[in-house]
Simulated assay, not measured.
Amino acid sequence: MSRAGLFLAFLIIPVIEIWLLILVGQTIGGGATVVLLLAAAVLGGWLMRREGRRAWAGLQTALQSGRMPERELGDSAMVMAGGALLLVPGFLSDIAGIFLALPVTRPIARRALAWFFGRRVSAMAARSPYGPLFDRAGGPGAPGGPGSAGRVVHGEVIQDDEVVEGQIVVRRQDPRQSP
């Protein structure tokens, strides 16, 4: 998302939140709207605490079993973000927070965020000077792909030592060669 897009999001989302608060306040009354917002904040705090503990336990289990806790770290981040969104007053942020914090909807959020961040990283990699190295299709331009048109770096390989049957053998320099 560009800077202009972020600016518009930070400008438009609060306006939508206020508009929704006014609509709900006109429909159910001001007091009931405030009670609903407070209930959402309390629910957010409780849900963040409960799911945070569950995510922490999953993280500990993954680390003790010796595997990389990718999913658990992502779940922890989503639970924290969801809880923070639930603590912010507003119905749109509450919906997003519930979507991120509930264990039922978290896999959907995980796939959507993985897709979004995958596209962002691919776009950033393509714009980098090393963009041809990140061609995922393996087509022309990809290293080792058909019609490989990647950069060729000319150089010289110098081997001072060689391995013979698991032993390092140091080559002796020829006295006739100058260093």
Rank of each mutant, 00 (worst) to 15 (best):
G45M: 07
G45T: 06
W46C: 06
W46T: 07
W46Q: 04
W46M: 06
W46K: 07
L47G: 07
M48G: 14
M48W: 00
R49G: 12
R49F: 14
R49V: 12
R50W: 00
R50F: 06
E51R: 06
E51C: 06
E51H: 00
E51G: 07
G52A: 10
G52L: 08
G52R: 06
R53W: 04
R53D: 10
R54W: 01
R54E: 10
A55E: 04
A55V: 08
A55G: 04
W56A: 09
Q60A: 12
Q60L: 10
T61R: 08
T61W: 03
T61H: 10
T61I: 14
A62T: 08
A62M: 08
A62C: 10
L63R: 12
L63Q: 13
L63S: 11
L63K: 11
Q64L: 12
S65C: 14
M68W: 13
M68Q: 13
P69I: 09
E70H: 14
E70K: 15
R71T: 15
E72M: 09
E72I: 10
G74L: 11
G74Y: 02
G74D: 05
G74P: 04
D75S: 15
D75P: 14
D75I: 15
A77Q: 11
M78Y: 07
V79T: 09
M80G: 15
M80F: 14
A81C: 14
A81T: 13
A81I: 13
G82A: 11
G82F: 00
G83L: 08
G83A: 10
G83P: 10
G83R: 03
G83S: 11
A84G: 14
A84R: 05
A84N: 09
A84T: 11
L85N: 01
L86H: 00
L86Q: 04
L86K: 02
L86E: 02
L87R: 00
V88K: 03
V88C: 09
V88I: 13
P89W: 04
P89C: 06
G90Q: 05
F91N: 00
L92C: 01
D94W: 06
D94V: 02
I95Y: 01
I95S: 00
